[in-house]
């Protein structure tokens, strides 16, 4: 390699920082959607680098379903404190209490789709015109065609057939009043890139990502954490297992993997040999083949 080449992680970093800076420059009220998962933690880390030595010039928004892992909430509060950044919490429980959203019933009930209501309400309440998220194109087929700057109409909806073309590194964030954008600075990263970069930069993660012992329930082949949010079906039993998480959503829907990987090196080794996708353990994607596409059209992350 000649001297004037940067490796792919630095190139992805550079691209993401460029996009984050564009968001800050092109919009009046941008926010970072913080789920507590590794991708949004990575995004927060990149935002810190983009504006250093100034602080991150926009707040983080967390949509609290009430079904989060306690580890996620503790990690979030610590990170916000350390960075000195503002945190806005949108509560699904509140949306339910106000009658804005209706709880699902049955043993497979989840609050995943209820987040859409809280998210859109929160974005509206804070007059957010750009919400950046840690979604990646390699995660799911509906995301493979997502733009960096993804336009949403006044109802928060995505129209996959009418997306703006994106050329070179010219991002068009112009919009009419009431519309907003979702922006995805790490669109081009893969799961492996994320882990390699976390290792390279020594980024702290919640303990959920590393191997640990936990009481679990195996449902339809998915390993779920036993918690107050899960109702046991007939024939199901609670087993203590050695697991870790590859993604972190709500407790009742995020599938774990059996794993002994307790540090980054072992996790990367595990991912290099794994045969299922990261979202393969997400019960929310298994509802229908186009579950993600359908939710995205309605305004999901």
């Amino acid at each position: 390699m000649s001297n004037y080449v940067i490796n792919h992680l630095k190139e992805l970093e550079s691209e993401a920082i460029f996009v984050i800076r564009e968001i800050a420059a092109q919009f009046e009220n941008p926010v970072l959607l913080f789920s507590g998962g590794k991708d949004s933690i990575l995004l927060t880390h990149l935002a810190k680098k983009a504006f250093y030595p100034a602080k991150i010039p926009f707040p983080l928004i967390h949509i609290d379903t009430g079904h989060n892992f306690p580890e996620t909430i503790a990690f979030r509060d610590e990170l916000v404190e350390k960075l000195g950044v503002k945190l806005i919490v949108g509560s699904v429980q509140e949306a339910i209490d106000k009658g804005r959203a209706k709880e699902e019933t049955g043993a497979d009930a989840s609050r995943n789709s209820l987040q859409i209501v809280s998210l859109l309400d929160t974005l509206e309440a804070y007059k957010v015109d750009a919400a950046m998220g840690g979604a990646r194109r390699d995660e799911e087929k509906a995301r493979a065609k997502e733009r960096f700057f993804s336009h949403r109409d006044e109802f928060g909806q995505w129209d996959p057939k009418n997306q703006r073309p994106e050329l070179w590194n010219l991002f068009n964030g112009r919009k009419n009043y009431g519309e907003h954008f979702r922006v995805f600075p790490i669109s081009n990263w893969t799961e492996m890139d994320v882990w390699e970069y976390i290792k390279l930069e020594n980024i702290d993660l919640p303990s959920l990502y590393f191997s640990h012992q936990r009481d679990c329930v195996v449902r339809d082949g998915v390993i779920l954490a036993n918690s107050e949010f899960i109702k046991l079906k007939e024939g199901e039993e609670v087993v203590n297992m050695t697991i870790r998480y590859r993604t972190c959503g709500d407790m009742p829907i995020t599938g774990a993997v059996e794993s002994e990987a307790d540090d980054l090196v072992k996790i990367i080794e595990e991912i290099a040999t794994t045969r299922t996708t990261e979202r393969g353990g997400r019960a929310d994607d298994k509802r229908a083949e186009t579950a993600m596409e359908d939710r995205k059209k309605q305004g999901y992350f």
Binding site: H8, R137, A144, K145, P160, Q163, S187, T190, M192, D193
Partner: peptide
Amino acid sequence: DVAYRYFATPRRK
């Protein structure tokens, strides 16, 4: 539409 795909080999991404 344009779809983006990703793969890596030991030499390049």
